[in-house]
Write a protein that binds this DNA or RNA. Structure first.
Length: 401
DNA sequence: GTCAATTCACATGAAAGAGACCACGGTCTAGTG
DNA sequence: CTAGACCGTGGTCTCTTTCATGTGAATTGACGA
């Protein structure tokens, strides 16, 4: 036994890998040059440049689908700006905040608390009135004369969840008598969200707008090549591999992040198969693997009640051949709850849970009208057959059947 | 046969409640000089 | 006298319930041809 494991590790260590340095394929990696985004970089630089003279730059609204380089470009541009400001001895601070991160900045309280923390205040995660946090925040702003740029990533998430109150207050700070001036750069991948904004917030936030169009297939190829040069050993990429990765991603609204992930996983697949060249087949496999892993992960991290609902849907699937209605799901769910001694949620809630599964892509739930026989959701399961057994046992484990 | 009214089975929205978690200020207690 | 334990109040946040309102087409039933 021990000998066998010895050999295993030996083999593992000696095993050739197609990778040279994987990190360039990770989404956190910042390349030295950002491809195909010169136009946007220039625009943003132009808008924020007045900060170097101590003026307040206009607020910016940045829009673009996921994986179009928004965050990357913005981080790069603001970093350059800060460096320039330091050279000129200008007081300028850029604070980047991602509003989507759970328990970090996804509510008004947490956003302001996070900002205040960045300014050196220590704010408890909860327990204080929001006003109190605002006071602390303003005090920190006023402590010294300084210009701030707040970059709020995924700002649409914040507004969707908690309204535009925080933005309203932020954009109004300059009207008040403060030592510091602040500019807000809002990043969103949803254009429609500005429509639901208070008109004052909207006009103030979108003083300037910058749009990040999706990459086309050729551009994605360029990006992949740039990264692959460092990520893989020479000759590790078979013919047509880059092209195929790019094609997959371009089909899906030009998401470069997806393309990079695809390439990385394809490399891992190749490694596992002990080949030293990535081929087109590996990409197909990688694509499936990504989808499967993602779905398994999503299901696994749902809470128990969700598992009960999903299990109800899945157990209805064979007999009803994918024409499952909310009422039926609820019936099964209720008896399941009784069987497993779990508290029963209302149908209202279960209805919401089902639509959340829909959004996660685990089921497809379309609202249909059956005329005289009412309105309901037409639910069908979207879990691929080859991972169904795993999902099922996972659910059964979770709900103790 | 045609057309408007009816009706079903939920969907969808808004508001409020429950419970977990937490800060703050005041009061109590025990230890110290 | 003071530091720390303890408690009540009031705050946020998530998940949930309650109450109210909306909705689209199959069905129904009145009507006229």
């Amino acid at each position: 036994m021990e000998r066998g494991l010895d050999r295993f590790f030996d083999v593992f260590l000696k095993k050739e890998s197609v990778f040279f340095d994987k990190k360039t394929l990770q989404s956190t990696y910042t390349p030295e040059t950002i491809l195909y985004r010169w136009e946007q970089t220039k625009q943003i630089a132009n808008i924020v440049a007045p900060a170097l003279k101590g003026d307040k730059p206009s607020n910016i609204f940045v829009y673009g689908k996921t994986g179009t380089g928004k965050t990357l470009t913005l981080k790069y541009t603001t970093q350059q700006l800060v460096e320039a400001a330091n050279r000129e001895n200008i007081n300028l601070k850029v604070i980047y905040i991602n509003c989507k991160l759970k328990r970090s900045a996804d509510t008004e309280y947490r956003l302001i608390a996070q900002l205040a923390r960045e300014l050196g205040k220590s704010i408890p995660p909860t327990g204080l009135p929001t006003e109190e946090v605002y006071r602390a925040f303003f005090k920190a702003l006023n402590k010294q004369k300084q210009n701030y740029i707040f970059v709020l990533d995924e700002i649409d998430q914040l507004v969707e969840k908690t309204g535009d109150g925080a933005l309203y207050n932020l954009t109004r700070i300059n009207e008040e008598d403060t030592n510091s001036q602040i500019s807000v750069i809002g990043i969103s991948n949803n254009i429609m969200f500005v429509d639901n904004l208070d008109p004052r917030v909207r006009s103030s936030l979108s003083e300037e707008g910058v749009v990040f169009p999706p990459y086309n297939a050729l551009q994605i190829q360029g990006i992949l090549r740039q990264r692959a040069e460092i990520a893989f050993k020479a000759g590790a990429i078979g013919g047509g591999v880059i092209e195929k990765c790019a094609a997959y991603a371009a089909r899906d609204h030009g998401d470069a992040r997806r393309a990079l992930e695809l390439l990385r996983v394809a490399g891992e697949v190749a490694d596992r198969k002990n080949t030293n060249k990535i081929t087109i087949e590996h990409i197909d496999e990688a694509e499936q693997k990504i989808d499967r892993d993602r779905m398994i992960d999503v299901v696994a991290t749902q809470p128990k009640q969700y598992h009960l609902v999903l299990y109800s849907i899945i157990s209805l699937q064979p007999q009803r051949n994918n024409n499952i209605f909310t009422g039926e799901v609820y019936e099964v769910y209720r008896s399941l709850c009784n069987k497993t001694n779990t508290s029963v949620l209302t149908q209202r809630r279960v209805s919401d849970i089902i639509s959340e599964f829909d959004m996660l892509g685990i089921v497809n739930a379309k609202v249909i009208s059956k005329g005289r026989y009412g309105r309901t959701r037409d639910i069908s399961v979207e879990i691929p057959q080859n991972i169904m057994p795993r999902i099922k046992t996972m659910l059964e484990d979770s709900i103790h059947i």
